[in-house]
Amino acid sequence: MNPETLLGDTVIDAVSAVFMVVGALMSLGAAIGLLRFPDLMSRMHAATKPQVLGLFLLLFALGLQLRTWWAWPVLVVAWLFQLLTVPVSAHMVGRAGYRTKHLHPELLSSDELEAVVQQAAGKRGFDDENPAGFNPDDAGSPDRRGRLDGGPGAGSA
């Protein structure tokens, strides 16, 4: 091995080493968040999201270490799969958590969904698929009304 590639190797090794350690720290952060946050929803913030960055850094380090161009597309695809699946599962768990009253109201500074759910529940019973599916003209908060730009189909669905 000639000297200049050796230097490049050292730099690449150093960068990937840093990325690997930081990526592992992201997992540790998720665990700390799991243990320290008080309720399910805030735990979810700590649990699912740092993993996105963690896996990105680890896959990047892996790509640097392999030093072949054909490894990159499959790494990108692996990361994209994670990008597509993480929000969906987080949303499903979060939604289930909200509906099964896993929230602690004393830990919320405001809950703008609560009023909507109450109103919809009072109007026509609790609808499983779409608890907030109601006519926006009846919405309680004036803030929400003011921000709707009244595009086609607003409130007519």
């Binding site: 946050f37 830990l107 609560e114």
Partner: peptide, 28 residues
């Protein structure tokens, strides 16, 4: 934001306050 949440978990921990915010979007 990853580091922000990380520091939040370490520093504030159980005392964190959250909210549910309604955001109407432009697009349909």
């Amino acid at each position: 934001a990853s580091f922000q949440v990380l520091s939040l978990a370490v520093v504030r921990g159980p005392l964190v306050i959250s909210a549910v915010v309604a955001v109407p979007l432009r697009s349909h």
